[in-house]
Design a protein around this nucleic acid. Structure first.
Length: 414
DNA sequence: ATTCCACAGGAATGAACGGAAC
DNA sequence: GTTCCGTTCATTCCTGTGGAAT
């Protein structure tokens, strides 16, 4: 018997569950895609392309729809001699400034031997490089900026559409497609950017439970062998995504993770219990990812929250978290952060979904303040902390972790 | 209607750091 | 090496805010 054997029991085509899988038709997005297609039409007519702005929650088909239409657009554009279409897609996740977008875009147009560094250049130099690349590419260029709301300044969104008018470009026609999870991003744009970027706006509504089930069913039919999925599995995965505002991606990820578990365990079918197990694994991964991106001080704040939670002292307001945090910081031999900064960390943890905040107001007697609670399983958070923070484990168990010197050894500054 | 509590969070600023260019 | 540049994490100072108390 070989060391490796091909697994065939569960999957027929696992890739059908991947985010980038392209199904033959997209469920429940007909009206949106029709409008989208109409907005792209000028490309084929050889006209100046529209700038398009898509918004809607995560996992509602914005990116999938874009890929679907862009593929067809490229295919159809190729049929016309006089149309030279180039499309560059860039996910802005992890990028925070126009500068970073610009450097990535330059690299998109350059080959591997002449890539530029993403830091070090003056801003204007990077823009100049970008105009040069765009112009030498020529034709119609669509730039798709996915998760564009991650950019904190809109300079690139202002510069790109105007590059032609500003004589930075002579031959290329530029169109921008901005994709955002966050509708308020649109309102925060400066008026001049808003009017140019939002020429065409298309809103993608969340999937309802029925549509989610349909999507999962469609993919599962391709992905799994017949009869592998037990009753209720699809529905359970759909419910998971529906809880987070109709997010198909989450549902599909869950289904795939469940399938992977089944494959690893060599089971013949996929049960609801396995889905719950997979949900646990994914949750752990999410926490891990969030925790590992935090500062030392962020870790201390999480740790303070976990201990407070264990003592039943949550929800806790900033005033109550503060002394716990400073205590830990001192024990770890680190200068505690100023309150303002600690609040920033609490806010960051809320964004990550590790803790949650509710605003309270007791008027003249109490003023406004926030109460924070743990949103994730404390054991999972501690496991993530343990993995992330160097050296030995922070704790052996959740019990008795307060006031224990040993538990804080890892936070010792280097 | 006005006052006022206890914060939230914006803005300005700076130190530390890594990369580019000279 | 030095200088210039952008980013991140932090501090300092400040204005904003919603509703109970007056």
């Amino acid at each position: 018997m070989g060391m490796f054997e091909r697994d065939t029991e569960i999957y027929l085509d696992r890739d059908a569950l991947r985010e980038d899988y392209q199904p033959e038709n997209l469920v429940g997005r007909d009206t949106e895609l029709n409008r989208y297609r109409a907005a792209l039409q000028p490309v084929i007519n050889g006209e100046q392309p529209n700038n398009i702005f898509l918004y809607g929650k995560t996992g509602v088909g914005k990116t999938a729809g874009t890929r679907y239409l862009i593929d067809h657009l490229e295919e159809d554009a190729a049929k016309y001699e006089d149309i030279d279409l180039t499309v560059k897609m860039l996910n802005c996740d992890g990028l925070s400034s126009s500068y970073q977008i610009a450097t990535r875009l330059v690299n998109e147009f350059r080959d591997e031997t002449s890539q530029i560094s993403t830091t070090g250049y003056p801003r204007a130099t990077v823009y100049d490089m970008l105009w040069t690349e765009l112009d030498s590419c020529g034709g119609t260029i669509y730039i798709v900026l996915d998760e564009v709301d991650h950019i904190e300044d809109d300079s690139i969104l202002y510069q790109l559409p105007r590059a032609r008018a500003n004589d930075n470009l002579s031959s290329a026609k530029i169109g921008i497609i901005g994709i955002s999870n966050d509708f308020s991003f649109r309102d925060d744009l400066s008026p001049k950017v808003k009017s140019s970027l939002c020429e065409e706006e298309i809103q993608f509504p969340a999937y309802d439970a029925k549509e989610l089930i349909q999507i999962l069913q469609q993919r599962a039919d391709v992905a799994f062998h017949d009869g592998v999925l037990e009753d209720g599995v699809i529905e359970l995965c759909a419910a998971y995504g529906a809880k987070d505002a109709g997010d198909a991606r989450q549902s599909l990820d869950l289904l795939m993770k469940t399938g992977d578990l089944a494959r690893d365990k060599d089971t013949d079918t996929i049960s609801e219990d396995l889905v719950r197990e997979a949900r646990d694994v994914l949750e752990r991964g999410r926490i891990q990812e969030g925790i590992s991106g935090l500062t030392q001080h962020g870790h201390l704040v999480v740790y303070a929250m976990v201990t407070l939670d264990q003592e039943g002292k949550t929800p806790a307001r900033t005033r109550d978290i503060r002394p716990r945090y400073t205590n830990f910081a001192e024990k770890a031999g680190i200068d505690p952060l100023v309150p303002r900064r600690m609040r920033d960390h609490l806010g960051e943890l809320s964004m990550l979904g590790i803790i949650s905040a509710i605003e309270r107001n007791e008027g003249r007697r109490g003023g406004t303040y926030r109460e924070y609670s743990l949103e994730m399983d404390p054991e999972m958070i501690l496991a993530a902390l343990e993995k992330t923070v160097d050296d030995v484990g922070i704790h052996k168990s959740v019990t008795n972790l307060v006031d224990s010197e040993a538990t804080l050894s890892d936070f010792q500054s280097t």
